[in-house]
Design a binder for these strands. Structure first.
Lengths: 200, 200
DNA sequence: CCTACCGATCGGTAGG
DNA sequence: CCTACCGATCGGTAGG
């Protein structure tokens, strides 16, 4: 006879996301989650069908956590290049601004699940593809508005933006290079500079 | 009374590196390693002091595996920009050419060990810093020989090259985008193009 | 390099 | 949401 606190599910997602951010998908276990949330392992398990279900729920929660710290602020910038730049600036280091103790769960999961088939991989892929599409839309707008060169390949630009994000993540969080932020900003600025319309 | 095959250590490193490449550091366990190499768990353990020791040995073996597939071919290119480009082309997708079934152990480990202190992290950091220094040396040579603009910031170029590598890795191995190779080559070409000496 | 263990932890189940 | 389990696997040890 379950007597669920109304906010138990939320606490599970909240603590689980913190664990995921710091330890990766393999670091999220029923036992550790139970400990962090202050209940029994079986009590945790009662909220999910399997550990894969936990992982997928946490990835979905990651996607929702991105809205207030990246998407909403970026949408306040004006359409086109300003908004694309706002997206990028909000993307860099977003986990810290979301109050998470670790790194980006999606970035880490992509390296963790290179060769691991299954629904968890599919969920991560869905998030990554969705994010790339969102960036692509901003680029399309910027091209249409004449902020970026109409001749450029938008998916190529998406690729290079993702590269800057990933190297910033590694340089900031793993290498702990104090110049990581500056380098990412500089890389972004010069990439955008050479993507501007050609003439005059 | 140990009766070690002369090549048992080599087989442990070989099979362990394959596991590491496919499953990451947390996927390498004494049990799985024993299974792949066809001996008992304790037999495997007799070769190491701890599981951390296994991980460090495998990371060192990764570094050594890089020599024949990246460094040696690149050193056959002529000094300066040609050699820098040779390094990059040999870096992209090197694990497949090394016969490994998975991705780059160092790239994956950097995301796995963001917030995990200890000797394994230090080993990964040593490999990453060493690799970045090697790239930096090629850039210095290219600048000195007038192949690249003498005014550019070499560490900034290293940063951006690492970004292309990481996004290529994700796009090729996780997203499985068939255009990953083309995109990486294009990003590299345009980055180098805008790093060339300014005046005619 | 083996057998035979150790306590801890894993995901998951039974039953309430 | 709990106690009380299950078999499997973890890193590691004893002793040969």
């Amino acid at each position: 006879m379950p007597k669920p606190h109304p906010n138990t599910s939320e606490r599970l997602l909240h603590e689980g996301l913190r664990l995921l951010s710091q330890q990766g998908l393999r670091g999220v276990t029923l036992g550790k989650l139970a400990e962090h949330v202050g209940m029994s392992k079986s009590g945790v398990f009662a909220h999910f069908r399997s550990i894969e279900d936990v992982q997928i729920a946490l990835l979905e929660h990651t996607a929702q956590s991105v809205a207030p710290v990246i998407i909403e602020p970026a949408l306040r910038a004006s359409e086109g290049l300003p908004r694309l730049e706002a997206f990028m600036h909000a993307w860099f280091g977003w986990t810290a601004r979301a109050g998470l103790p670790g790194g980006c769960p999606v970035a880490a999961a992509m390296f963790e699940l290179d060769d691991v088939e299954g629904p968890v991989r599919e969920k991560v892929l869905e998030l990554e593809v969705g994010w790339r599409k969102l960036l692509r839309l901003q680029i399309d707008d910027a091209m249409r508005l004449g902020h970026l060169d109409s001749g450029l390949d938008p998916d190529q630009l998406v690729f290079e933006l993702c590269g800057i994000y990933l190297c910033h993540h590694v340089s900031l969080r793993f290498v702990r290079d104090p110049s990581a932020d500056t380098r990412a900003q500089r890389a972004l600025a010069s990439l955008i500079e050479r993507s501007r319309p050609a003439r005059s």
